[in-house]
């Protein structure tokens, strides 16, 4: 049960992290003109954070195999 509990806590932490990164004021830091590799900063930020978050979720979900 302890493994289950700790995995649950990791997921909750990831959700909190996501809520933080996709929220004011962090979001406002990237809500600026300009581009990264031709992509507007805000768009690039959102998609990169999103992808990293999913990767972390995959890691936590599959970690004990």
């Amino acid at each position: 049960m302890s493994d289950f509990a700790s995995r649950g806590q990791r997921f909750v932490a990831l959700c909190m992290l996501g809520l933080l990164l996709f929220n004011y004021p962090i979001l406002a830091l990237f809500n600026v003109p300009g581009t990264v590799f031709g992509v507007p900063v805000l768009y690039a930020y959102i998609f990169v954070v999103w992808a990293v978050l999913i990767a972390l979720m995959a890691f936590v979900a599959e970690s004990d195999r």
Binding site: R7, G8, F11, V12, L14, C15, G18, L19, F22, I46, W50, L53, I54, M57, A61
Partner: peptide, 17 residues
């Protein structure tokens, strides 16, 4: 349009619980 998909991503992190 993105919160409609980011929201579920965050929620799914809680699915384990």
């Amino acid at each position: 349009f993105l919160p409609i998909y980011i929201g579920p991503t965050l929620m799914i992190a809680l699915w384990w619980v």
